[in-house]
Design a protein around this nucleic acid. Structure first.
Lengths: 120, 120
DNA sequence: CCGGATCCTATCTGATACTG
DNA sequence: CAGTATCAGATAGGATCCGG
C-alpha cells in the first residue's frame, strides 16, 4: 500500500527542470541570450510576439533562478542589459539537443497528426 | 518594419517541440513507457498524482502525435496496452539529457532562489 | 478495467494605460 | 528606455458521475 514506483520521484529535480524549461518564453529568451548580451528592447524585438508583461516577468524568474544576469546602468534614458550566467550557459546545450530532435523528427509528428486526422 | 530577426522562427519546429515536451504529463508517460509496455492501470499507478482525465487525454495526444501506440484486446474486462513507437523512442535520449542537467545543475537553481529570497 | 462527458476553478497571458 | 498596474479573456487541470 505504501509502495508505489512513481518513477519520476527518483529524479526529484526532473519535473522542476521540465517546468522551468517548458515556460512559454524561457527557451526563446535563453536562445536569444545565447548569442550574447542584449538590452531589454532588443530582446523584445527579437522575440517579437511576447508582451512586455510576460517578457519582464520571465526575465525576473530567470534572474531569480540564477540563469540570467541583469545589469542596470544609470544613464538617461536608462540602459538595462541581460546576459546568461555560467549556469544559464549550461542549459544551452541540452536545449540545442531538443532543437536537433525537432529538426530531425518533428515532421514525423506532423505526418502522424495529418494521417490520424484523415481517419476520422 | 517587415524586418525582425525572431530567432525562434529559424527553427519553426522548436517551439512546437518544446510545447509538446513541456506538457505536464508527457515526459512522465514517456519515461514510464521507456521501461516497456504498460497497461492503463499500471501507468496510472506509476505516475501517481495524475487524474484519469489528464492521463487519458495526454495518451490520446501522444497517440495522435505518433509517439505512443495503443493496443486494445477485447478480453473481459478489457485490456489496453500502451508502448512507445520508434518515433517515441527517439525522444527518450533528449529527455535523458535534460534529466542529466537537472541532476547536475538544478541544485544551483535552488540555491539561487533561496539566496535571492533572503535578499528581499 | 478503461475511459468518455460534464462541470468548475485556478492560473496564465495579453491588452491597455500609466511612470521614473 | 524600461518597466509597473490593472483588468479581462482564455486555457489547463481536477473532481465527479456515468457507460461499454
Amino acid at each position: 500500500m505504501a509502495q508505489s514506483p512513481k518513477i519520476l520521484n527518483a529524479h526529484p529535480y526532473l519535473r522542476q527542470t521540465l517546468e522551468l524549461v517548458s515556460d512559454k518564453w524561457v527557451t526563446a529568451i535563453i536562445y536569444v541570450l545565447s548569442q550574447g548580451t542584449k538590452r531589454y528592447g532588443e530582446l523584445h524585438r527579437e522575440i517579437g510576439e511576447v508582451s512586455q508583461r510576460m517578457l519582464t516577468r520571465t526575465l525576473r524568474d530567470l534572474e531569480r533562478d540564477g540563469l540570467v544576469r541583469r545589469e542596470v546602468y544609470s544613464t538617461n534614458p536608462p540602459t538595462v542589459e541581460y546576459s546568461l550566467t555560467s549556469l544559464g550557459e549550461t542549459l544551452v546545450e541540452p536545449l540545442r539537443l531538443l532543437c536537433q530532435w525537432s529538426i530531425e523528427h518533428f515532421q514525423e509528428v506532423e505526418t502522424a497528426r495529418k494521417s490520424k486526422d484523415n481517419h476520422r
